[in-house]
Amino acid sequence: MYKKILLAADGSDHSIRAAEHALALANITANSHIDIVNIIDSETAKTEVLKFGESHMLDDKRREKLHGVEDVLKSEVSYEVHIVHGEPGPTLVKRANENDYDVVVVGSRGLNNLQSMVLGSVSHKVAKRVNCPVMIIK
């Protein structure tokens, strides 16, 4: 049923819990696969360049932030990490709709609380516009 799962994750506690739910969904079907997608928006890019400097260092740091999420899935299910640049909502929607996922799992709130207060949460935008079922982890 849920063979191809998109897990939106930024390394926050919310996204770690989302990973646990994604794993539960993955376990329903044999040979399922989870794509962990971390979206870097321009504000995050700016902050992280200021904080870490060079680009190869950035990639490492970004992978590092997702270790908590990876720990949940490691040795349980096949997964892959994708770090994508763009605005979180639209980028996630585009990716989900273009790649025939069976389900999208997102946390209700990520690391960027301020932004979700001003612009409304990414998860609601995703739920509205993605064609497949969306699971929002509260």
Binding site: S42, A45, K46, E48, V49, L50, G53, E54, S55, H85
Partner: peptide, 14 residues
């Protein structure tokens, strides 16, 4: 050069 690094990162190019 700071801005260039930010654009490098955003566009994933060197």
């Amino acid at each position: 050069l700071l801005t260039a690094t930010i654009v490098d990162d955003m566009t994933q190019s060197d």
